[in-house]
Simulated assay, not measured.
Amino acid sequence: MAELQLFGTWGSPFSKRVEMGLKLKGLEYEFIEEDIKNKSPLLQKYNPVHQKVPVLLHKGKPIAESLVILEYIDDTWDVGSPILPKSPYDRAMARFWAKFIDEKCIPTLRKACWSVGSEQEKAKEEAAILLKLLDSQVEGKKFFGGDTFGLVDIAASFIAYWFGILAECGEVQILNKDKFPNLCEWIDVFTNNSFVKEILPPKDILTEKFKALFQAAKQARTA
């Protein structure tokens, strides 16, 4: 058995976070594809609390939750590129914004795509406020950490890639260069980075998947 095993799914933004962290460190690992609709006994064993991906298995010991895994990787292997900054203050700020993205941004952006009517309009307004905060954080920078790719960029990968596809499939207009110039510039840099492009799932396959989900949701509402 490999020293490092990653339980994930091909299209999960959270699995891809861990892949980015492992690649930054130059670490070899075995990827184990999970079927979320038919969870394996191993996934249920190694993540009995949430029973979801990703789970990193290191020498038989499981670590769950993508942001927790990224910090574990950074703390355990002093090789390759760092995931978090060296300064305690900068590390605290990186943790803060990564948590902000997970707890505030992603749920609101998803709601803006999947809800309808007045609920959707409210979610879109809330999403714009949150994105404006992120826009100000990356102003004048290449990455959220300055010139260095790190934790917040990895955490925001959902916004850079998955959300754009979701919004397009759901015909939702929120993120544009007029309102969020700094964030959109960061997205261009992020998605065109050769390191990132090797890890991101194919856009055409994600688009096909999301379109099918939107169609199924529409049919369910009209049934």
Rank of each mutant, 00 (worst) to 15 (best):
V55D: 11
K39G: 09
G21R: 00
L134T: 10
C184G: 04
K86R: 12
A94H: 06
A2F: 13
I129L: 10
E65S: 04
G117L: 01
A127H: 07
F190H: 11
V152E: 01
I63V: 15
A212T: 15
I154G: 05
A216L: 12
Y72V: 01
H58C: 10
N38L: 04
Y161Q: 01
P54R: 00
S115H: 06
L56S: 13
A127N: 05
P41Y: 00
Q215V: 12
I63F: 14
F158Q: 05
P181A: 00
V196E: 01
F31C: 14
E34N: 08
F158L: 02
N176Q: 06
A160S: 12
M1G: 14
M1N: 13
V116I: 05
I159Y: 03
Q120G: 10
Y46R: 07
A217Q: 14
W186N: 08
E198D: 14
F158I: 04
F195H: 02
I159C: 10
K111E: 06
A160V: 05
S115Y: 07
I69K: 03
C169N: 02
V68Y: 05
W97V: 12
D74N: 04
I174Q: 03
A2P: 15
D78M: 06
K99P: 13
A94G: 08
I106N: 01
W162Q: 09
H50D: 08
G11Y: 02
A98W: 06
W77S: 03
K203R: 15
K141E: 12
F149H: 03
E103Y: 09
L56F: 15
F210E: 12
E65A: 00
C184N: 09
E28S: 15
V49H: 04
K23D: 08
L67Y: 05
S118Q: 08
C169R: 00
I73Y: 06
F144N: 07
S115V: 06
E119Q: 10
V18H: 06
N182E: 04
P13T: 00
Q215I: 11
